[in-house]
């Protein structure tokens, strides 16, 4: 494990390329949701056949998850050596 000495440039080192990927993801998501226009999905629940159900659920579930977890940090987060402070801890 040594500090970076190689000067090789990787494709991902260019922030413009990362932006390209990010935009690509938006486009992919747009295309995926468009499938719902043509495909009548067979679902076990009626509510899941609504246009874009899975996309919206995935997106908002993850945003909610992260925001909730961020709040949880206030409650749960402690210093890394929290349990080591009293050395008798077994």
């Amino acid at each position: 494990m040594t500090p970076s000495t190689d000067t090789k440039k990787y494709w991902l080192d260019e922030s413009a390329n990362v932006t390209k990927l990010y935009k690509g993801l938006w486009i992919a998501c747009g295309l995926l949701i468009a499938i719902d226009l043509f495909l009548h999905r067979h679902e076990d629940f009626d509510f899941a056949t609504v246009f874009g159900f899975h996309g919206a659920y995935g997106f908002f579930a993850c945003v909610a998850l992260v925001l909730a977890a961020k709040q949880l940090r206030k409650l749960l987060m402690r210093d890394e050596d929290y349990y080591d402070k009293d050395s008798h801890e077994r």
Binding site: L25, C29, L32, D36, H54, A61
Partner: peptide, 13 residues
């Protein structure tokens, strides 16, 4: 399709 949508939009989030 449903599963791919779910995962891609999670990635988007």
């Amino acid at each position: 399709v449903a599963q791919t949508q779910l995962l891609f939009y999670s990635a988007l989030a």
